[in-house]
Design a binder for these strands. Structure first.
Length: 585
RNA sequence: GGAGUGGUAGUUCAGAUGGUUAGAAUACCGGGCUGUCAAUCCGGUGGUCGCGGGUUCGAGUCCCGUCCACUCCGCCA
């Protein structure tokens, strides 16, 4: 049916008879000659339809945008002066001697280049994906996955599939459930990740496993979060942190080099969780952004100003500042907008100081809060922040979680708005996470990573004695401010695993009921092992420089979890429910 | 669950302060045109202003509610 892709035609092929198939990208009807731009996966070719070929011309006159055509004709170099340098095939054209409409197209809901809204694009995703920009994104994704597979295959990793119908887990995100027809009242859960299965594969002696696995979490969506997403899941036996992170950053370097021709640093910088929170108020800092926080709790402990001194003395709180170079000319209106911005994130307010000439101390600055601060405190703040003439200082004071949230958001926003973000790639490892966090609402300990992460202590007794002080053997890979992967060395001893369950508030009976199969597996010879899981959608989104992961997923869901194309989720009929033994309430 | 932004021809958008017949571009339809590639020229069709209620002599515009989309917070072991 076809001899070439449209996009392959070049002057070197001139003189050949070619057969093309594709979609009508556009057409120009001059009355006496009709040009048709025919598009396929590889590009666009120009068909020339002359009235001398009466049959061809008659068909061409009826053709409309996005019709599917088959054409045959002689490929020739275009007449002098009519080449189109903007087209890869612009030096040549096909003089059609056969033209057939394989499929007509109705008027389109939107046209290429019109910049349709996202909801419409999703409803007619097959039209959206015809656009070269979208096709290029899918191709980038394919090449990334191919490069990942090649790297891991070469290094002895085995691709193993794990179940999509499995059991719900008590910890973690909300599960998607699927009723079990054969066991009325029971449910499968779709996997949040293949975590337990890949650990079981290590106990099976697989040694090195990977899988490009679909995962499901029923939580609210974000620009970089979908209810179903794709993980690159990796697990290795007889390894420590250095071996896993070393190999995985080599993987990232190879993929970026192969797919983008980009060079990532060797080795990646490393930062502890404590450092990341102190300097960037985030466990996934964007190191392209030069702004850094300055901790001021120590400097302001004795201040008369209670807004600062009270949190400065409270261990669960912090006082910190962000120095914005050259921003002292920011208007009152802009500062008010920033204040509203942090208030939306729970902050009480946002103190600021504009520095005209810091060398003159109090007299060289402007701020509503200066009158509450002693000269020594002002100079201490100036010294610690390194504030210079023309700079603006923004303060956060209060519960650490809120201050961190607000200052991290300010840092991101101002970095972007003031064009401070350096171009390029800034990967890093964040390590030494706390293993557990006390949840004040539920009054219980929660695993920061997951309950199978090995704590950095040798004995269960040490863990139970000081859970809040225990670090985990976890590591996150961060790229340009996004967590793109996270993993850990796992627990491979039953006693430690039981101790973690106990700490998390699972009784021995509950642990047996929910995880008995896994605890048993730990009793029959479990190798030390560890691994990592990457969010491939995020990875590709960053590589594609796209604004959301929806742009690199063929058929994504909207923020409410709906698919505008299929209109899923949809109602089911009463019979289906009856068979499954369930009823909608 | 919360905060914000948006919803007006098929599409992308404009419609200060409430005022008569809601506009533009593009698409679409008809016609002209033999070298275009955002073809071009002439003419034409096209609107429950997201939905429901309210205020008003009068609502695309103001108020209340609601739905949808997007961004963010919570949530995401």
């Amino acid at each position: 049916m076809r001899s070439h892709y449209c996009g392959e035609l070049r002057a070197g092929l001139a003189g050949q008879t070619v057969k093309l198939c594709g979609w009508v990208n556009g057409l120009r009807d001059h009355g006496g000659v009709i040009f048709i731009d025919l598009r396929d996966r590889e590009g666009i070719a120009q068909l020339v339809c002359n009235p001398e070929q009466a049959g061809v011309f008659a068909v061409a006159e009826t053709v409309r945008a996005e019709y599917v055509l088959r054409a045959k004709g002689m490929l020739r170099v275009r007449p002098q002066g009519t080449a189109n340098p903007q087209l890869a095939t612009g030096e040549v054209e096909v003089v059609a001697d056969e033209l057939e409409i394989l499929s007509a197209a109705s008027d389109l809901p939107f046209h290429h280049g019109e910049g349709a809204g996202e909801e419409l694009r999703l409803k007619y995703r097959y039209l959206d994906l015809r656009r070269p920009e979208m096709l290029a994104r899918l191709r980038l994704r394919h090449r990334t996955l191919a490069a990942v597979r090649a790297f891991l295959n070469e290094r002895g990793f085995m691709d193993v599939e794990t179940p999509m119908l499995t059991r719900a887990t008590p910890e973690g995100a909300r599960d998607f459930l699927s009723p079990a027809r054969n066991r009325p009242g029971r449910f499968y859960a779709l996997p949040q990740s293949p975590q337990l299965f890949k650990q079981l594969l290590m106990m099976s002696g697989l040694d090195r496993y990977y899988q490009i696995a679909r995962c499901f979490r029923d939580e609210d969506l974000r620009a970089d979060r979908q209810p179903e997403f794709t993980q690159l899941d990796v697990e290795m036996s007889f390894v420590d942190e250095e071996e896993v992170t070393g190999l995985m950053e080599a993987l990232a370097r190879e993929v970026f080099a192969k797919v983008l021709g980009a060079q990532l640093p060797d080795p990646f910088p490393r930062m502890t969780y404590a450092q990341a929170m102190l300097r960037y108020a985030s466990d996934a800092p964007d190191l392209r952004n030069p702004l850094e926080l300055v901790e001021l709790s120590e400097a302001l402990r004795e201040a008369q100003f209670k807004v600062f001194s009270a949190p400065a003395r409270d261990p669960g709180c912090r006082v910190a500042a962000l120095r914005i170079p050259g921003a002292a000319d920011m208007s009152r209106r802009e500062l008010d907008q920033l204040t509203e911005f942090v208030q939306a994130m729970g902050a009480r307010g946002m103190a600021w100081i504009k520095a005209a000439d810091p060398s003159r101390g109090r007299d060289g600055m402007r701020s509503p809060i200066l009158k509450f601060l002693a000269d020594g405190e002002i100079s201490s703040v100036a010294e610690r922040t390194g504030v210079a003439a023309g700079d603006l200082l923004l303060f956060g004071a209060g519960p650490a979680a809120i201050v961190n949230r607000a200052l991290a958001a300010l840092r991101d926003r101002l970095g972007r708005e003031r064009n401070l973000i350096a171009p390029g790639w800034a990967p890093l490892w964040v390590t030494d996470f706390p293993a557990f966090e006390f949840d004040e609402n539920e009054k219980r300990w929660k695993a920061l990573h997951h309950p199978f992460t090995a704590p950095g202590v040798a004995a269960p007794r040490e863990l139970l004695a000081r859970p809040g002080a225990t670090l985990s053997r976890a590591y996150d890979m961060v790229l340009n401010g996004h967590e793109i992967g996270g993993g850990s060395i796992r627990i491979h001893q039953r006693e430690m695993q039981s101790a973690v369950f106990e700490l998390l508030g699972l009784s021995a009976a509950e642990a047996e009921e929910k995880f008995g199969f896994f605890l048993r597996a730990l009793e029959f010879g479990a190798p030390p092992h560890g691994g990592i899981a990457f969010g491939l959608d995020r990875w590709v989104m960053l590589m594609a420089e796209a604004e959301s992961i929806r742009e690199v997923i063929a058929f994504p869901k909207t923020q409410s979890g709906a698919c505008p194309l299929t209109e899923a989720p949809a109602a089911v009929n009463a019979r289906q429910l009856r068979e499954l033994g369930i009823r909608a309430i």
